[in-house]
């Protein structure tokens, strides 16, 4: 069953069209990779799913995205509630300049969790789920900026998980990390698939091939091809997809 249904979505920044008539169904509890050259609109598409694009002035949306049968661009939608269900991890780790504990607790506190014991529990489960608990459990009061880049990024994943989302968006979340940290996070993502629907943007084709179940190739704001990852990389239907995954342009 498709948990995210993107329906004739077009996005404009001022006069510039960033996405053109995107139609895409993303199945539940799977990993979907969005690939394509710089400026193809993959980040825009990702940010449309939790409406982070609303932050951009002069942004206009046509069409719709339906999540679990609910139109997220409907008038009734509160972006705060949407983003609670659709978490996001960014390209660069962006922990708040406070303690590890407060970083994880930030989201639950926003959404009304007050009891210390409950928050303690959430902090532990989230950090465990993000495979960073063992490294930080003794220093939860430590400033999060003192962690390494890879640890910070897993902290940010934990922070996103702490509000208990259904969907997790990852915007090139390993692009700034060393190979070892990248490997850890890739394993983590595969593990998270059991519970979450994951959509990830990546520049790294090998990563898309390693991690994702299905892959979407975008070019100039349009979906060129959407197929199970194995098929898209081995027997691409469109020639442009073939050229891109063979590394002829990018």
């Amino acid at each position: 069953m498709n948990v995210i249904q993107i329906d004739k979505l077009s996005v404009y920044y001022g006069d510039q069209q960033a996405l053109n008539n995107i139609n895409l169904g993303i199945p539940e509890k799977s990993i979907t990779a969005l690939i394509g050259p710089s400026g193809c609109g993959k980040s825009t598409l990702l940010r449309s799913i939790n409406r982070m694009n609303d932050q951009v002035p002069l942004m206009k949306v046509k069409g719709d995205i339906v999540i679990s049968g609910v139109s997220i661009y409907g008038k009734e939608v509160r972006t705060e509630m949407l983003r609670k269900r659709v978490g996001m991890v960014f390209q660069l780790p962006n922990p708040f300049p406070s303690s590890i504990y407060d970083n994880i607790a930030y989201g639950p506190r926003l959404h009304g969790t007050r009891k210390k014991k409950e928050i303690d529990e959430i902090v532990e489960t989230s950090l465990r789920a993000a495979a960073v608990w063992d490294e930080v459990k003794d220093n939860l009061k430590q400033n999060s900026l003192s962690l390494s880049g890879g640890q910070q990024q897993r902290l940010c994943i934990a922070r996103a998980l702490a509000v208990n989302p259904d969907i997790l968006l990852m915007d090139e979340s390993t692009a700034a990390l060393d190979p070892l940290s990248t490997q850890k996070i890739e394993e983590l993502i595969k593990d998270l698939k059991k519970e979450y629907t994951i959509v990830m943007v990546t520049h790294n084709l090998a990563q898309a091939a390693r991690v994702s179940d299905q892959t979407t190739f975008l070019l100039d704001g349009e979906v060129i091809e959407f197929a199970p990852t194995v098929d898209l990389f081995s027997t691409p239907v469109d020639q442009r997809t073939g050229n891109y995954v063979m590394g002829r342009f990018g």
Binding site: N50, M52, Q55, T79, E80, M81, L82, R83, K84, G87, M88, F90, L92, N94, P95, F96, P97, Y106, G107, L110, H111, C156, R159, A160, V163
Partner: peptide, 20 residues
Amino acid sequence: SLRYGAYALGATRLEVALQV
């Protein structure tokens, strides 16, 4: 990026301004 981090967790503008 800090603001985005908070918005992505579902914070309102006021919460971003005062808490982040």
